[in-house]
Simulated scan of single mutants.
Amino acid sequence: MGGHLDGAQASKIAVQRLAEIVQGRTVNIEQLNAALEPAGQGHHDLGDVDTLSRPGTTVAGLALTEQDGEVCWLAFHVGDSRIYRWSEADGLEQIGSDHSVVQALVDAGAITEERALTHPQRRMITKAPGFGDRGGADYTFLPVVPGDRFLMCSDGLTGELLDGRIAVMTTDADEQALAEQLVAEAVQLGAQDNVSVVVAQV
């Protein structure tokens, strides 16, 4: 989380905890919750009693799980890092919604989505592991469909590129090239925040 001490370390803790649960073909929500909880505790240990300066990180991920005996995707996110799915049938769609001040204002009808793009509080999140009282992830079950493409990214990307531009670029054939192209374009546009991108093809 930008502006917080030891943000890189908080991110590293989350990655380590999540990596520890990847032992088999699938994972479940209980394992993910357990992985994110210790990560949150680790974040608390890094910071002092000042909540405003306590380390934190956002998380966006995709895992295989089983539901009713069928293998499916389990998308999970906390904060304003996002997961998008691109499919031939539906194009680009965001999975879930941001845990942010401006998203809450949009949901409440207080501001428009257009206003949210330039709102002075657009980078303020409402929850993250180790930050706030409701730091748990949101989960979405999705079918495994050959040809689908998933994009996971930090707000450094979506703060610079609108969904329409991301949608145009997601038809690129090579996942690594697409990820690098998205990062490069966000940086060229003057990204002021970390730009992290992962692209996965089914």
Score class of each variant (00 low, 15 high):
2 G>L: 06
5 L>A: 13
6 D>K: 14
8 A>T: 00
14 A>R: 00
14 A>Q: 06
16 Q>W: 02
16 Q>A: 12
26 T>G: 05
26 T>R: 12
28 N>A: 06
28 N>P: 03
28 N>E: 10
31 Q>G: 09
33 N>V: 05
35 A>R: 04
36 L>T: 10
38 P>A: 04
38 P>Y: 03
39 A>L: 02
41 Q>W: 07
41 Q>L: 14
41 Q>R: 01
41 Q>T: 08
47 G>A: 08
50 D>E: 13
52 L>E: 05
53 S>F: 01
57 T>R: 03
60 A>F: 08
61 G>R: 01
61 G>C: 05
62 L>N: 08
62 L>M: 05
63 A>E: 02
64 L>K: 08
64 L>G: 04
66 E>S: 14
67 Q>N: 11
69 G>R: 04
71 V>Y: 00
72 C>Y: 01
73 W>L: 09
74 L>R: 02
74 L>W: 06
75 A>R: 03
75 A>F: 03
75 A>K: 01
77 H>Q: 06
79 G>L: 06
84 Y>S: 12
84 Y>Q: 07
87 S>V: 12
92 L>E: 07
93 E>N: 02
95 I>V: 10
95 I>P: 05
98 D>F: 01
99 H>I: 04
99 H>N: 10
100 S>K: 09
100 S>V: 09
100 S>C: 14
101 V>N: 03
106 V>T: 13
107 D>M: 07
109 G>Q: 15
111 I>E: 04
115 R>S: 15
119 H>D: 08
120 P>S: 07
121 Q>W: 11
122 R>A: 05
124 M>D: 10
125 I>E: 06
126 T>A: 15
127 K>Y: 08
129 P>M: 11
133 D>H: 12
136 G>W: 10
140 T>M: 04
140 T>R: 04
140 T>G: 05
140 T>A: 12
153 C>R: 10
154 S>A: 14
156 G>A: 06
160 E>H: 05
161 L>T: 02
162 L>M: 13
162 L>Q: 14
163 D>W: 09
164 G>C: 05
165 R>C: 00
166 I>Q: 03
168 V>T: 15
169 M>N: 14
170 T>A: 11
173 A>S: 15
179 A>D: 15
179 A>M: 12
181 Q>G: 12
181 Q>F: 05
184 A>S: 12
185 E>C: 07
188 Q>N: 13
189 L>A: 15
190 G>S: 03
193 D>W: 00
193 D>P: 02
195 V>D: 08
196 S>L: 11
200 A>Q: 00
200 A>V: 07
202 V>G: 11
